[in-house]
Amino acid sequence: MDEIKLSAHALNLYFGNKKILKNINIDFPKNQVTSLIGPSGCGKSTLLRSFNRMHDLSPDARIEGTLKLDELDIYDQKNSVTEIRKRIGMVFQKPNPLPKTIYENLSYALNIHKFPKNEIPQLVESALKESYLWEEVKDELKKPAVKLSGGQQQRLCIARTVVLRPEVILMDEPCSALDPISSHKIEELIMILKKNYTIVIVTHNMQQAQRISDKVGFMYLGELVEFDTADNIFKNPANELTKNYVGGHFG
């Protein structure tokens, strides 16, 4: 049996009166890649964003149910949202580097979390190496991050997340804004990162989900229709909807 890192139990989420997520129960195994797939608007990004409480920003979002990181209740008001987000990193659909230099994009989180000053340069370097960006940027660390190409920016955003050594990395369609070569690099990176991190990734791309995932959840209209190993979902789905979706019949 896999060790469970992150879980949702009886999760309902509303935006205003609209119910977006309907009774979701899901367990993400430790140090594996789990993909969430499904047609646009099925709630996969919404589900992903509820784990690091990104919906706190939306005034009309309301959440019921229990979400846990190990045994920690993510929505318990006693627990620090800052601490949770430090432990659960996130990479967004569109690269969103901070309006700072490449170096500062990585050192920023280390500084606010009060890492010892003398360790920071070393941590920045190793995170950039881990994200396979070091060779490309080592001579221009003082350049504004927005000057990088889209693919480089996204790897920078991954490095920025990795530098904090989170336990979980949430990725919201990290390749959708990138060209095939950049996407491929990021996929390789994900395969390497999963040795140390629990990764949950939302993707539109079936081939990608098939290549990188250990487990796959298929969502439709706010419900988790099927959750199984990647092999079963793609080769032997139990549900008719899943079969049609992965077979390319809709979505």
């Binding site: 620090s80 800052t82 601490e83 430090k86 606010i112 979390h113 009060k114």
Partner: peptide
């Protein structure tokens, strides 16, 4: 703890 202080 540092995080507590920042949140404060």
């Amino acid at each position: 703890m540092s995080i507590k202080k920042r949140e404060k």
